[in-house]
Design a protein around this nucleic acid. Sequence first.
DNA 1: CATGAATGAGAATTCATTCAT
DNA 2: TATGAATGAATTCTCATTCAT
Lengths: 214, 214, 214, 214
Amino acid sequence: MGAQGKRVPRAVREQQMLDAAVATFARRGYRAASMDEIAEAAGVSKPLVYLYLHSKDDLFTACIRREAAALKAAVRAAVELDGPADRQLWSGLLGFFEHTAAHPDGWTVLYSQARTVGEPFADEVAAMRAEIVEFVRGLIAAAARDADCDDGDLAEREVAALAHALVGAAESLAGRALGGTAASSGRENAATLMNFAWSGLANLMDGRPWTPSR
Amino acid sequence: MGAQGKRVPRAVREQQMLDAAVATFARRGYRAASMDEIAEAAGVSKPLVYLYLHSKDDLFTACIRREAAALKAAVRAAVELDGPADRQLWSGLLGFFEHTAAHPDGWTVLYSQARTVGEPFADEVAAMRAEIVEFVRGLIAAAARDADCDDGDLAEREVAALAHALVGAAESLAGRALGGTAASSGRENAATLMNFAWSGLANLMDGRPWTPSR
Amino acid sequence: MGAQGKRVPRAVREQQMLDAAVATFARRGYRAASMDEIAEAAGVSKPLVYLYLHSKDDLFTACIRREAAALKAAVRAAVELDGPADRQLWSGLLGFFEHTAAHPDGWTVLYSQARTVGEPFADEVAAMRAEIVEFVRGLIAAAARDADCDDGDLAEREVAALAHALVGAAESLAGRALGGTAASSGRENAATLMNFAWSGLANLMDGRPWTPSR
Amino acid sequence: MGAQGKRVPRAVREQQMLDAAVATFARRGYRAASMDEIAEAAGVSKPLVYLYLHSKDDLFTACIRREAAALKAAVRAAVELDGPADRQLWSGLLGFFEHTAAHPDGWTVLYSQARTVGEPFADEVAAMRAEIVEFVRGLIAAAARDADCDDGDLAEREVAALAHALVGAAESLAGRALGGTAASSGRENAATLMNFAWSGLANLMDGRPWTPSR
DNA sequence: CATGAATGAGAATTCATTCAT
DNA sequence: TATGAATGAATTCTCATTCAT
C-alpha cells in the first residue's frame, strides 16, 4: 500500500518504521497509537514491524533512543567549544531550539509521551535529561569561574538549581513553540533564557538573591 | 465489595468517584486506566459510574475541571492582594507549590496526562494555563510599574515572555518535586523562581538584556 | 446466537461454558481449539467467557479439574465397599468404563489432551492418575491378603507394578472404546482386565512368575 | 547462523530437518511448534524447509512415517524368529522398550502427539499400531497352539483382546519410562508384561477365566 | 439508589507460507 | 542449493458501554 518499492534492505526499512512510529506516537500518544496505524504509516505490513522491532514496547524504546541520541548530538554539535562560557551556553540553547523545532515529533515523543507512560520509558528520558542538565551545569559553573574567581564553591547548590530551572524553562518554551500558538523563533527563546540565566547567575554571584523576607 | 454503606447521596458518590478517577488516571494514564479499575477503586459498580458521569471522556473532563478549579482557587486564595507586587507573586508561587505538593494526583492529571491525550482535554488545560499566565503577567507588569514609572510599555512583549517562562519553570519544578528525586520544599522552589523572575525583570527594566552580539 | 435465553445466573453459565469447552477441546485439542469456537459453542460472547474463566489456560484447567473430579467420584461411587476385594476391583473397573463411555469428551480431555500439552496441565492429570493407581494398589494388596496370609510383603514391588500396568491397560481399553472401532462394552473390558489382573496376581502369589531365562 | 557448511546434499539436509522437527514436535506439540523454531533447530532457513518438505502437515507426516518405520524395524529385528513363541514375544517386547527408550522423541511424537492432533495423522499411527497388534496376536496364537492343540479357535476373540491389552499396557509402560519417574529398565517392563500375558493366556486356555458371577 | 449479566469492536501478537534473488 | 524480505489470516485478550432487574 505504501509508495515505497518492495524488497528494501532491513536497515532502511527500520528507519522508515521508526519515522512512522515517531510521527504516530507524537500525534496519538503511546497507548492510543495502534500497531496497525504505524505499519500503515510506514507502508509495510504489521508482521514486518514485529519481525524487526519485536513489540510495541521495544518499538517505543527504539524511538526514544533514536530521538534522544539525535537531540543530544544536535546540542553537542551546536556548542561552540572554543568560545567563552556564555557564548557556549547560547549556542547550545540555539541548537536545542532549532533541533526541537525541526523535529517536533521527536520532541513530543521524548517530552510529552515518554514521560507519562511510566517506568521503563520515563527512565530512559530521565537519563537523557540528566545528561543535559549536567552539561548545562558545567557551562554555568565555568561562566561563574570566568567572571569571578573567588567564592566559586559557595554557589554550588544554587548553580545546580539554576541549571535545572533553565532546562525546565527551555523545555517549556520548546513545548510552546510546537503548540503553534506563538511562533517564537529559536533565537528569541534562546535570548529569553540567556537573560534569565545570566541575570540570575549575576545575582547569585553578587550574593544578593531575592528573599521573601520582605 | 466496597466498604461504603449503600444509599449514599449522589453528590457524595460523585466526589468518591472523582477521587478514585483522579488517583487512577494519575497512576495509569488516561488510556491505560480502565473503567473497571476506577469503579472498583470508588467502591461502586460500573453502571453507577456511567449513570453519574456518562462516559470515560466525561469523567476525565470532570476530573480536569475539578482539579483545575481547585488549583486556581488555591493560588488565588494564597495571593496576598494588599502587599507589593513582588510579595503577591511570591505568595502566589508558594500557594501553587503547596497545592501541587498536597495534591500530586491532581497535578499529574492536569499536567502530565491531560496535555498528552489530545484535543478536547488539552484545550481545557490550556485555558486554565492561560488564565494563570495572564494572572502572573499582570503581577509582573504591576511590579514593573511600581519600580519604574516610565518606559513601561516598551517591555510589553518581554514581560509576556517572562510570564510564560516563569510559569513553565514553575511547572517544571513542580514536576520535579513530585518525582521524589529532589524533595525541594515549596519555599525553596518559590525562592528560586523569584530570583529568576526578579533579576530577569530588573535587567529588562534597566534596558540591558543579554544579547548574543558578543 | 445460542438458543439459551439471556440473563442466566453465573453458576449455570459457567457450567455451560465448561461443557462447551470440554467438547471443543476434545474434538480439536488444546491449541487448535479457539476461544471463539468455544464461546460460540457455549452460546455466549467471548468476553463473557473471559469474564468468568479468565484465560484459555484457566479454562482448560477448570475443565481438567471438573472432569477429574467427576471421574474419581464415579469410580468411588461404583465400588462395592462391603464385598470381597476382587468384587471391589471389578465394580470399580466397571464404574470406570461406564463413566468414560458416558463422558467420552471428558475422558479425551483428561487422557489425550491434557497429558500432551505440558507442564501445568499434565501435572494435574498425573496427580489424579496417581490417586487412582494407589486406590487400585490397595485393592490388589487386600485381595492378596484375603487369599494368602503369609508372604504378603514379598510381593510389595510386584503389586505396585501390577497396579500400574492395570491402570495403563484400562486407559488403553477406554481409549479403544472411544475410537469407535470395537464397541466393546464396559463389562467386556472389565472382565478382560480382571482376567489379566487376577491371573497375574495368582502367579505372583504362587511365586512362579514367567522369566526370560528360557 | 547454522553451524553446518553450505551446499549439503538434499538427502542429508532432509534428515537434519526431520531430526530437528521430531525433537521440536516432541517438546512442544504439533501446534505449538513453529516452522521458525524447526528451521532454526535444523540450522537452515525456512524456505528450504518448505522447498524440501512442502508444508507443516507434510513435515509432520514425514516425521511420523520415519519414526513408525524405525520402530517397526527395531521390533522386527529384535524378534528371535527361530525360538519358541514365548521367546519371540519376549524378544519383541524387549526390542520395543529398548527402541522407545533410545528414541524418546520419536516415541513421543508417535504416541502422544500424533494421536491427539486428529484425522490425517492419527490414522497413520493407528495403521502402524494395527500392524503391531496383529503381529503380537499372531505370536500369542502360535503360543497357544504350541501349548494346546485342540480348542484353539474357541479363544479366538479372547486372544485378540489379550493382544490389544498387551500392546496398550506396553505403550503405557513405555510412556511411564519416558516420564523419568520410574526409571524402569526395558527388561523389567518386558518381564512384567510377559507375566501378564502368559498367565492371562494360561487361564484362557484352561477355560477358567475370572467372572463376576461371584 | 444500585447492580449482575452481557457484548461489539478493536487491541497486540504469532504463524504458515511465498517471492525475488 | 539457499535465503532475506514480506504478508494474509488468525488468535488471545481487553475495554467502553448497555440492559433488565
